[in-house]
């Protein structure tokens, strides 16, 4: 008999209490195989412990409690999962969470992102600035040329 077959039989034949129904092949294997014997002992112990949770005597007040529950109309099925207070608390917590997320997004885009991306902006900024300086210089030269034309170009005085 293989150990796997024996272990299946152990689950099958281990009783809640008392002796295991006799099975010659199983008993012989258990005598020879330490591993399976240990499995049988452990399974039997666990089953016995689990069965120990069962109620073995009548509770004399059980009927009275049933009647009380019946009169109160408090069955497991009608009990609410959450009270309104807990729904309110959850709503408040969710609102707080949403506000924190929005604040995070705002801070991220307005405060953190500019700090992180400063070099790129500065480079562009200086290029833009340079361009504007160049334009300014151009405008300056144009203005100077115009002034010279008005005030110092004697050849065209009459036209003016």
């Amino acid at each position: 008999m293989k150990c796997t077959e024996v272990q299946e039989l152990i689950i099958d034949l281990t009783p809640l209490s008392g002796e295991r129904p006799s099975n010659a092949a199983l008993e012989q294997h258990l005598q020879e195989c330490v591993s399976c014997r240990r499995v049988a002992e452990r399974y039997s112990s666990a089953l016995y412990e689990l069965a120990g949770e069962r109620q073995l005597t009548n509770d004399p007040f059980f009927y009275d409690r049933i009647i009380k529950k019946m009169n109160d109309g408090q069955s497991v099925a009608v009990r609410k999962l959450w009270s309104s207070k807990e729904y309110y608390q959850l709503g408040r917590a969710l609102a707080g969470f949403a506000a924190a997320v929005l604040l995070g997004i705002w801070l991220g885009s307005r405060v953190i992102a500019p700090l992180v991306t400063t070099p790129a902006v500065k480079e562009n900024y200086s290029a833009e600035k340079q361009e504007s300086y160049e334009q300014e210089i151009d405008y300056g030269s144009e203005a100077l040329a115009r002034l010279e034309y008005y005030f110092f170009d004697d050849a065209n005085q009459e036209k003016k």
Binding site: Q7, I11, S35, R38, A46
Partner: peptide, 15 residues
């Protein structure tokens, strides 16, 4: 059920 239990318990009940 017994087959499943055997599989689930194999690792725990084998010393």
């Amino acid at each position: 059920a017994k087959r499943n239990l055997q599989k689930k318990l194999k690792h725990y009940f084998n010393p």
